[in-house]
Amino acid sequence: MNQQSDNTYHSWLPFYTLLKKEIRRFLRVASQTLVTPVITASLYLFIFGATLGERISVLEGFSYAQFVIPGLILMGIINNSFANVASSLFMSRYLGSIVDLLVTPVTPTQFIMAYTLAAMLRGLAVGLVVWLISCLFATLPWAHPFAAIALACLASFLFAQFGIIAAVYADNFDTLSMYTNFIILPLIYLGGVFYPISILPPLWAKLSHLNPLFYLIDGFRYAILGVGDLSFVVSFCTVTAMALGLFAWAAILIARSYRLRN
């Protein structure tokens, strides 16, 4: 049986296999991972685009639907990038199947890259479908398309890292859902998805600047609509710094196998 010397070892194959497994995992339960978030986003679009939106105006020169769509696309990207890696990695830890990876030559870099890329793909796929559906409600000017794509990728990357961190620290499903319910959702809703920060009273507007998602949402809206509360450079640099910070954190956890190997 020892024909291993005849087999060629491909150092990139562990990464590719783990990536393939992660993609297959979310495609296998596509009704939960892809369809549900798109339906949720479509409901928001219907409410704010076709019903309430016609009575609200928050940004001169743009309909409320046009204002809210960038935030909804980003919300889909953020939630799904986070959920993909957080649920997959946490389930592996919780059910013990993580040992299947721990005994293999998968390196920490390959581990992070595979989980991150799969999460980004799911997040960006949901974002793309939300944008396609949004075309039924409003047309977006796409003022700076490359900047929008860069920020979308950065957002999915950032929340994939956050997903890794959450999955490592979570002790049970309750703790894991707390990351979504008590951190991500409030930050998204208070970060300017549904309103421009400029319409808030001065104190609340200042406090909003402490919300990291404000920079992401405002930058993305600027890239699509061409207007924002902040300069794009400030938004982009802040988001990049956050992404690098979380990446470093996640990388240290995985490199040390923190809470993965005892």
Partner: peptide, 21 residues
């Protein structure tokens, strides 16, 4: 230790890949 998302055939193919083969 199993991954409930996959069939035996799929899981065996994946597992060889984790080892780089």
């Amino acid at each position: 230790v199993i991954d409930n998302f996959f069939t035996i055939d799929q899981a065996l193919r994946l597992h060889a890949g984790y080892y780089g083969f």
